[in-house]
Write a protein that binds this DNA or RNA. Structure first.
Length: 326
DNA sequence: AACACCCTCAACCGCAACGCC
DNA sequence: CGGCGTTGCGGTTGAGGGTGT
C-alpha cells in the first residue's frame, strides 16, 4: 500500500531525526501514557501520542497500552485451563489470535500468539511434523488436551481437598469422566492460580446444571452445541479456520478428551513404570509400540525424539509432580 | 569465569479494513 | 466515489535473561 509506505517513510524520517522513539518503553513514557488515557480515554492514538507528549507513533502507543498497560491484563503463566482453551479455539479458528484472545479475559492476542509459537510449535518441531498436520492435531487432541484436563482436575482436587477441611465432603472428588466434565461442583474447577471470580471456574467448564459450558458458553457462541453445526458460513469458517476438529457436536471433543485422558494417563503410568529408576526422558517411540499408536495417528511418522513430559511441564511440573506423588 | 546457544516476549512491521470527509 | 487517517490483525524480529558447555 503506497499510502502506508509513505506514512512509514515519514515515520522513519522522524525516527532518524530523533523526533520519534522506538524500542523498549521507559517508566516515564508508561506514566505519560497511563495518565493521558486515564484522563482522556483510549483511541485516536496518533493525536493521543502528540497530545500526551510522547515521541512515539500512535501505533506504538496503542500496542503498549493494549499489551502491557491496560489495567485488566492478567499476569503470569498461561494456566492449564487457558492452555486447553487455546488449543481448542486454535483448532477451530486457526491463527485468529485476537478472536481467541477475546475468550481469554485479560490475555492479549500477542501473548497467545507467543505462547503458540514458543510452546506449541516447539513440540510440533520436536515431533518433526507440521503444526497443522493431522498427526500433530491428534497428539494435541488425544494426548496433550487430556493431560491438561487431568492436570486441571489434579489441581482442583488439591484445592478441593484443602477446602474439604472446611466444607465436609468437598474432598470427595468425583471421577474425571463423570463429574468433572459435567461440572457437578463449581469449586472443582477453580484453579489456585486464578482469582475466585475467574470465568474459568463454572462459566467455562461447567455448571451445576451439568452442561458443557465450555462449549455452550454464550461468550463462545461458535462452540455452542446448538450453533456449532448451524452457524452461518461466516469468515470464521473461511481460509483462516482449520477444520481438523470439524464440526463436532458441542462438547464432543471435550468428552473425547476426557475419556481419552484415562487411556493417556494409563499410558503415562506405564511409561513411568517402564522407566523404572532411569531418569531419562520419556520417549514415545521407545515406550509405545506402533501397534498402540494408530488410533492416535502418530504411528507412521517419526516420534522417537519427542519428549512427552515436556508437554505438560512447559511452565512448571505441577502435574507431573502430582502424578509422581500418587 | 567465559562463551555460546536457546528461549521468551515486548515491540515492530506490513497490510487490510473501516470510517469520515 | 476517492482520498486520507485510524484501527486492528497476523507475522516477524531482536534484546535480554537463562542454561549448557
Amino acid at each position: 500500500m503506497d499510502m502506508a509506505h509513505e506514512r512509514d517513510a515519514s515515520s522513519e524520517e522522524e525516527v532518524m531525526a530523533g523526533e520519534l522513539r522506538r524500542g523498549p518503553w521507559t517508566v516515564e513514557e508508561d506514566l505519560l501514557l497511563v495518565n493521558y488515557v486515564a484522563s482522556h480515554g483510549e483511541g485516536r492514538w496518533n493525536s493521543l501520542a502528540r497530545s500526551a507528549g510522547l515521541k512515539r507513533t500512535g501505533k506504538s502507543c496503542r500496542l503498549r497500552w493494549l499489551n502491557y498497560l491496560r489495567p485488566d491484563l492478567r499476569r503470569g503463566n498461561i494456566t492449564p485451563q487457558e492452555q486447553l482453551l487455546i488449543l481448542e479455539l486454535h483448532s477451530r479458528w486457526g491463527n485468529r489470535w485476537s478472536k481467541i484472545a477475546q475468550h481469554l479475559p485479560g490475555r492479549t492476542d500477542n501473548e497467545i500468539k507467543n505462547y503458540w509459537r514458543t510452546r506449541v510449535q516447539k513440540h510440533a518441531k520436536q515431533l518433526k511434523c507440521d503444526v497443522n498436520s493431522q498427526q500433530f492435531k491428534d497428539v494435541m487432541r488425544y494426548l496433550w488436551m487430556p493431560r491438561l484436563v487431568e492436570r486441571i482436575q489434579a489441581a482442583a482436587a488439591g484445592a478441593a481437598g484443602a477446602a474439604g477441611q472446611v466444607q465436609a465432603g468437598a474432598a470427595d472428588t468425583p471421577p474425571l469422566s463423570s463429574s468433572w466434565q459435567h461440572g457437578a461442583d463449581d469449586g472443582l474447577y477453580a484453579s489456585p492460580e486464578l482469582p475466585a471470580d475467574a470465568c474459568w471456574s463454572a462459566e467455562y467448564y461447567g455448571t451445576a446444571a451439568g452442561d458443557h459450558q465450555l462449549l455452550n458458553n454464550p461468550a463462545v457462541p461458535e462452540l455452542s452445541s446448538t450453533t456449532a453445526g448451524s452457524s452461518s458460513p461466516s469468515s470464521d469458517s473461511g481460509a483462516g479456520a482449520q477444520p481438523w476438529l470439524a464440526p463436532v457436536g458441542g462438547a464432543e471433543w471435550f468428552t473425547t478428551a476426557c475419556d481419552a485422558s484415562s487411556a493417556a494417563v494409563a499410558m503415562h503410568d506405564a511409561v513411568l513404570a517402564g522407566q523404572q529408576q532411569q531418569q531419562q526422558p520419556c520417549l514415545l517411540g521407545e515406550t509405545w509400540t506402533s501397534s498402540e499408536l494408530p488410533e492416535l495417528g502418530v504411528a507412521d511418522f517419526e516420534i522417537g525424539s519427542f519428549d512427552v513430559e515436556s508437554i505438560w511441564s512447559m511452565d512448571d511440573n505441577l502435574w507431573y509432580t502430582q502424578r509422581q506423588g500418587v
